[in-house]
Design a protein around this nucleic acid. Structure first.
Lengths: 125, 125
DNA sequence: TGACAATATATCGTATCACGATATATTCAC
DNA sequence: GTGAATATATCGTGATACGATATATTGTCA
């Protein structure tokens, strides 16, 4: 049996606690809805960062609850849809003032931490 | 009740998955035992990275089990200790060849990931 | 001599989090 | 009309960082 016959087990943990930083960062360019964030992040990372639903939506809710994000629902009417009560729902998220301030702090602390980690790495291995 | 009356709750999550990178890095300079690693990391980080026992020892065991570290026990005899069966025990760890190779890979992937995260951060907030 | 701090290893329980799987509904393309 | 894409959301699992706790030895200082 080959070592990696089927690998839907365990974790890869790509995000390493930077999920909030990513979401706040892409929203700094303007409001987006969840699915659009997913696509945006995938595109800008060349497909290497996949912000899956199971990661994204709990994260958005948590950021909103913390007052860092504000949101409003949009109902998209399909051209042939005459029923006003139906239509695809989108929840648009945008940075709050608090979220913008927090983003600046997170960037600073992220860079400080990475600088610290980098200082531990050996020049010669 | 003040918001942070007593805060031994929850997490700070300073390490963010870089624990193995830290340990492998400090061991690249030569063998060390656990407690010395703690002190070394604390000193080199100005006290901001505290590799507590609950983090360090499981990590060392896991790295050893993965074949990245090799170890041997040392028994330190106190000057006034005549009993050969007693004395403070130290477990010295050193990088294996596999560990050294892995360190190089981890550094490369860490830097690639950080570069990717950095590319998401907005210039202007 | 006795107490306390520092040295040194280790495990346990909890909280958090990233992730795959799954669910539901709408709309577009063919 | 069938399937892919769009769009939101929750659940269960596994990994892990952490504080708390335990145990034993050694150094310091009164």
């Amino acid at each position: 049996m080959p070592d990696d016959a089927s690998k839907p087990v365990g974790s890869s943990d790509l995000l390493k606690g930077a999920g909030d930083l990513l979401v706040l960062s892409v929203l700094a360019d303007g409001p987006l809805y969840g699915y659009a964030i997913t696509k945006q992040v995938a595109a800008r990372s060349g497909g290497s960062i996949r912000l899956t639903p199971g990661v994204l939506y709990p994260l958005l809710h948590q950021l909103e609850q913390s007052g860092l994000l504000l949101s409003n629902w949009e109902t998209v009417q399909a051209p042939d849809n005459e029923d006003e009560d139906k239509g695809r729902r989108r929840k648009w998220y945008r940075l709050s003032a608090k979220g913008r301030k927090r983003l600046a702090q997170r960037i600073a602390s992220h860079r400080a931490y990475q600088k610290m980690i980098e200082s531990f790495l050996p020049d010669q291995i």
